Simulated scan of single mutants.
Amino acid sequence: MASMKLRAAALLSVAALSLTACGATADTASEANADDTKTVTFTDNEGEKSAAMPAKSVVATDNRTFETLDSWGIKLTAGAVSLMPDTISYTKDKEILDLGNHKEPNLESVVTVEPDLIINGQRYAQYAEKFKELAPEATIVSLDPREGEPFDTELERQTTTLGEIFSKQDEAKKLVDDFEAAQKRVTDSYNREDTVMGLIASGGELGYSAPSTGRTVGPMFDFLNLTPALELEESSTDHEGDDVSVEAIAKSNPDWIIVMDRDAAVGSDGEEYKPAKELLENSEALQNVTAAKEGHVVVMPADTYTNESIQTYTEFLNEFADALEAAK
Score class of each variant (00 low, 15 high):
6 L>C: 14
22 C>F: 13
24 A>T: 11
33 N>P: 07
34 A>Q: 10
36 D>A: 13
40 V>P: 07
42 F>A: 04
44 D>Y: 04
51 A>R: 08
51 A>Q: 07
52 A>Q: 14
59 V>E: 00
64 R>E: 04
65 T>A: 13
72 W>P: 07
83 L>H: 01
83 L>W: 02
89 S>R: 06
90 Y>T: 14
92 K>M: 10
93 D>F: 07
102 H>E: 10
103 K>W: 13
103 K>V: 08
104 E>V: 12
109 S>G: 15
116 D>W: 12
119 I>S: 04
119 I>P: 03
120 N>C: 10
120 N>E: 12
120 N>P: 12
123 R>K: 14
124 Y>K: 05
138 A>K: 11
138 A>W: 06
140 I>F: 13
143 L>A: 12
153 T>G: 07
153 T>W: 08
156 E>S: 14
159 T>Q: 09
170 D>T: 15
172 A>Q: 05
173 K>W: 00
177 D>M: 05
177 D>S: 03
178 D>N: 04
179 F>P: 09
186 V>G: 01
187 T>F: 09
188 D>P: 01
192 R>S: 15
193 E>P: 01
194 D>A: 00
195 T>D: 00
196 V>A: 01
198 G>I: 11
199 L>R: 02
201 A>S: 13
202 S>A: 03
205 E>A: 15
206 L>H: 05
207 G>E: 02
209 S>K: 15
210 A>Q: 04
213 T>C: 05
214 G>Q: 01
216 T>H: 10
217 V>N: 02
220 M>V: 03
223 F>E: 05
226 L>I: 13
226 L>K: 05
226 L>S: 03
228 P>E: 04
230 L>A: 03
231 E>V: 14
231 E>N: 02
232 L>E: 06
234 E>F: 03
238 D>T: 08
245 S>G: 06
249 I>A: 01
252 S>F: 03
255 D>R: 00
256 W>S: 06
260 M>I: 08
261 D>T: 04
262 R>L: 02
264 A>T: 01
267 G>C: 00
267 G>N: 00
271 E>N: 10
272 E>K: 08
276 A>V: 04
277 K>F: 10
277 K>L: 13
297 V>E: 08
298 V>P: 02
299 V>E: 09
302 A>Y: 04
303 D>Y: 11
307 N>D: 13
317 L>H: 10
322 D>Q: 08
324 L>Y: 02
